[in-house]
Design a protein around this nucleic acid. Structure first.
Lengths: 234, 234
DNA sequence: TCCGAAAGTTGATACATATCAACTTTTTCA
DNA sequence: TGAAAAAGTTGATATGTATCAACTTTCGGA
C-alpha cells in the first residue's frame, strides 16, 4: 500500500504517539497470563478514562477509539498527546513512588481499553528482558515525541502551531488528506495551545491561501507542503 | 540533616532531573563489566558534550558538574533539563531506530562524564530485570518532570516562569536559599523561555517586592512561599 | 593596567494573540 | 417541531512580552 502525501510529511510535533506492541515479545505462557487477567471496558465520547491524581492499579491499553491525554493544573489543561489504538496509558505510574495517574485521559470518541494490572506488567518486565526493553523503547518514543511537541507549542506562533496539528491529524490519525473532523474548534484550540477565536481566524486564513478546504465538518488538506513550510517558519 | 525551606517547596516544573542510581541493581560481575569498559571524559565550561543528530554509541553518566540539555530546531533552542551529577544523557537513543542524540548537551561549568556503550546497557537490561525496571523508572521520572516543565513554560506567564526557575535552582541544584550564581542573565532567560530584558525587569520586580536579593552574582531567596504563590497564580 | 568586548540595564515601541462582546448558525432534546 | 443551549464567527480592544536602540558596567586578555 502506498503512503499518501500527508503521511510522508514530517512534522516536528506529532501529537499522536505511535506505539509499538511490547506484548508481542512475551512467551505464549506470559501472553496467556495477560489475557486471562485483563478486563475490557468501553467508554462513551467525553467520558473520563483515567483521572490525574487517582491511584493507578492498572495500565490501560487503548484498543479502539481515540483519547485525549492531558495534564491538569490550576484549572488549566495541557494536552500531552492523543492516544490512538495501541497506545499505553498509565505506564509512567509504574515506579512505586509515582503510583497515581500523572495525567487525565478522556475519550474523544467512543473508546475501549484493556486494563492490565501494573503488578503483572512489573512481573513480566522483571522476568522477560525483551519485554522490558520494549517498554523502554516506548517510553523513549514518547519522550522524543514530547520534545517535539514541547518545542512546537513554546517556540512557534499560532500559524505554525495550527499547521502542525492539522498535518498531524491528517498524517497520523486519519492517514489521508481529507477527513470528517469530529473535534470542535475549541478542542482544536486546546490541542494547539491557542484561543478558539484565533483558531477560527487562522483556519480562515489557511483557506484563503488555498492550503486547506473546510466544508462543515469535512476537512481537506490541499497543500501539505505549504503547511509544512508554515510550520518551519514559525 | 534537616531540609531547608527552599528544598521543601514544591514547584510544578523542576528543570533538574533527579536521577536514581540504576547501576546499584547490577550484580558485582555486571558492575565490573561496566567499570572495566567505561571511559571518563572531562569537559570545560561551554563545551559540547553531545550533539543532537550525531550517532549515539555510548550513554553518558554525568559524574561531576552541571550540563544544559536542550533541543535544537531552526536556530531556536529549548532547554529540556539541567543534568546534575547522576543524570543519564543519551538514554533515549537506546531504541534501534533512534540511534542519534535527540538533544544537545553542553557544560554549564567544568563537567566530567562517564561513557558506557549503549550495547552494554542493552545487554544488561536484557539479562537483569531489576536494572531494566530501574531504567524504566528513570524514564518515567524524566517524563513526569517534563510534563511539569512543559506546562509551566506554555501556560504560565513571565513572572510565574521565572519564579519557578529560581525556586528550582535554589531547591534542587544549590539546595540552599543563597548561592553564587554562575549563569548569565541570557542563560536564565533561555531556561525560563523569555527574553533577557524581561528577565532583568522581572528580577528587579522580585527584588523590589522583597522576594529575592541580588548582589552581583550572589542570589538570595528571601521569600520562597511568596515565589511559590507567584508560580501558582501564573 | 588599560582597552575592547561581552554582559547587564533601561526606556520606547511594536506586535502577536488573548479577551470581550455581539451576533449567527447549528445542534440537542423536551 | 420548536425553543434553548452549544458551537461557531466576527470585529474591537487590551495586554503581555518581544524587539530595538542607547547606554553603563563588568570582565578578560594583550
Amino acid at each position: 500500500m502506498q503512503q499518501s502525501v500527508v503521511e510522508r510529511i514530517k512534522t516536528s510535533c506529532t501529537v499522536v504517539n505511535v506505539n509499538k506492541d511490547a506484548f508481542h515479545f512475551l512467551t505464549d505462557e506470559q501472553k496467556e497470563l495477560v489475557e486471562s487477567r485483563q478486563v475490557t471496558v468501553a467508554f462513551k465520547k467525553g467520558e473520563i478514562i483515567a483521572k490525574q491524581g487517582t491511584f493507578t492499579t492498572h495500565m490501560l491499553v487503548l484498543s479502539e477509539g481515540l483519547a485525549k491525554v492531558y495534564y491538569e493544573e490550576d484549572n488549566k489543561t495541557l494536552i500531552l498527546r492523543i492516544a490512538a489504538p495501541g497506545s499505553l496509558i498509565g505506564l509512567t505510574s509504574l515506579p512505586q513512588n509515582n503510583n497515581v495517574f500523572q495525567y487525565t485521559a478522556s475519550a474523544y470518541i467512543n473508546t475501549t481499553v484493556k486494563l492490565i494490572e501494573l503488578e503483572i506488567i512489573k512481573k513480566l518486565a522483571l522476568e522477560n528482558g525483551r519485554f522490558a526493553l520494549a517498554l523502554i523503547d516506548i517510553l523513549c518514543e514518547i519522550s522524543i515525541q514530547k520534545n517535539g511537541r514541547f518545542f512546537c507549542l513554546s517556540h512557534r506562533q499560532s500559524y505554525g502551531k495550527l499547521a502542525d496539528i492539522i498535518l498531524c491529524l491528517a498524517g497520523n490519525i486519519f492517514k489521508k488528506s481529507d477527513f470528517e473532523f469530529a473535534l470542535s474548534r475549541k478542542e482544536l484550540a486546546e490541542l494547539s495551545g491557542m484561543s478558539t477565536e484565533s483558531v477560527i481566524r487562522t483556519l480562515k486564513h489557511f483557506q484563503e491561501d488555498g492550503l486547506i478546504k473546510i466544508t462543515g465538518k469535512h476537512f481537506e488538506v490541499i497543500d501539505p507542503e505549504g503547511l509544512q513550510k508554515i510550520c518551519q517558519l514559525g
